[in-house]
């Protein structure tokens, strides 16, 4: 039988992805790139779910992934609509320029 990749590798990979996404959210200033980083975080979570699900041989984790994907699509749709509304109002998509309200 072929030797399978240990669970740890998947978890470390997904943790790296998650952190990359989180760092992207914190450092990027363009709202659309922030949304891309959030997608990366969500996909890191999906990877964790799938690897645990296959390790525990429990399909519930893979089921969760479908829901996460569906919700992520909805969230992206709403997020982009909001960015559009913001652009019409303030002619920018950079979050550091959007600062009418502080503290």
């Amino acid at each position: 039988m072929q030797e399978s990749v240990p669970l740890n590798y998947y978890l470390i990979l997904s943790a790296i992805f998650f952190v990359m996404g989180a760092v992207g959210v914190l450092t990027r200033r363009n709202a659309i790139i922030i949304f891309m980083s959030i997608e990366m975080m969500l996909n890191a979570v999906n990877l964790t779910f799938v690897s645990f699900s296959s390790y525990n041989s429990d399909p519930a984790g893979q089921m969760f992934v479908f829901f996460v994907m569906a919700v992520a699509a909805a969230e992206a749709a709403i997020g982009l609509a909001i960015v559009l509304a913001l652009y019409r109002n303030q002619q920018t998509v950079y979050v550091d320029k959007v600062n009418l309200m502080k503290w």
Partner: peptide, 19 residues
């Protein structure tokens, strides 16, 4: 203007925390 700004901040924080 404030409403669309509020909405953007809400959606970014919301998506990150649910992530």
């Amino acid at each position: 203007k404030r409403a669309s700004e509020a909405s953007l901040k809400y959606v970014i924080f919301g998506a990150v925390s649910s992530g």
